[in-house]
Amino acid sequence: MHEARVIWQSSGDFAANRYTRGHMWRFDGGAEVAASASPSVVPEPMSNAAAVDPEEAFIASISSCHMLWFLDFARQAGFEPRRYEDRATGALVRKDGTTWIPRVDLNILVTWAVAPDADTHTALHDQAHHACFIANSVKTEIVVNLLEDAP
Score class of each variant (00 low, 15 high):
S38C: 05
G97H: 04
W112Q: 03
S36N: 09
T99L: 11
W100E: 09
T89Y: 11
I108F: 10
I59W: 01
A49Q: 09
T98Y: 15
A37R: 06
G30E: 08
H121Y: 14
P43Y: 13
V41S: 12
F73K: 00
E85V: 11
V110G: 00
A118D: 12
I62Q: 01
G30C: 05
I101E: 06
T20P: 00
S64E: 09
D86G: 06
P54M: 06
R103W: 11
G97C: 03
A60E: 04
A77Q: 10
A74I: 03
G22Y: 15
S61D: 01
S11Q: 13
M24K: 14
R26N: 12
E55P: 01
G22R: 15
F79C: 02
H23L: 01
L109M: 13
S36K: 06
D13R: 08
E56P: 00
P54A: 02
T120E: 11
S11V: 08
A113D: 15
T20S: 13
A123P: 02
A49W: 07
L109R: 09
L92R: 11
W112L: 04
A51R: 00
W69R: 03
R75I: 03
A31W: 14
A74N: 00
F79Q: 04
D86F: 04
A115K: 06
I59T: 02
W25M: 11
G22C: 14
D13L: 07
A35H: 05
V110P: 03
A123R: 09
H125E: 06
E56M: 01
F79I: 03
D96A: 12
T122E: 14
V104R: 04
P102W: 09
A31Q: 14
T111S: 13
T99P: 02
S61W: 01
T120S: 10
H66A: 13
G97S: 01
V41I: 14
I59P: 00
V42Y: 06
S61Y: 02
V93G: 00
S64Y: 10
A34T: 08
A37P: 04
A60F: 02
L71K: 01
W100C: 08
V114R: 15
P43F: 12
G90N: 11
P116V: 04
G30I: 09
D72Q: 12
R21Q: 11
A88V: 01
Q76G: 02
S10L: 15
R83V: 10
D119K: 15
S63F: 03
D105V: 08
G22A: 15
Y84T: 01
H23T: 02
V93Y: 10
K95L: 14
A57K: 09
P102T: 05
I108V: 12
H23P: 02
L92W: 12
G90D: 12
H66V: 05
L106M: 13
A77I: 07
S47Q: 07
A118V: 15
G30N: 04
A88Y: 05
R21M: 10
A91S: 14
C65A: 07
H121R: 15
P81E: 00
S47C: 07
P43K: 10
L109Q: 06
S36L: 05
A37V: 01
E44G: 06
G12C: 12
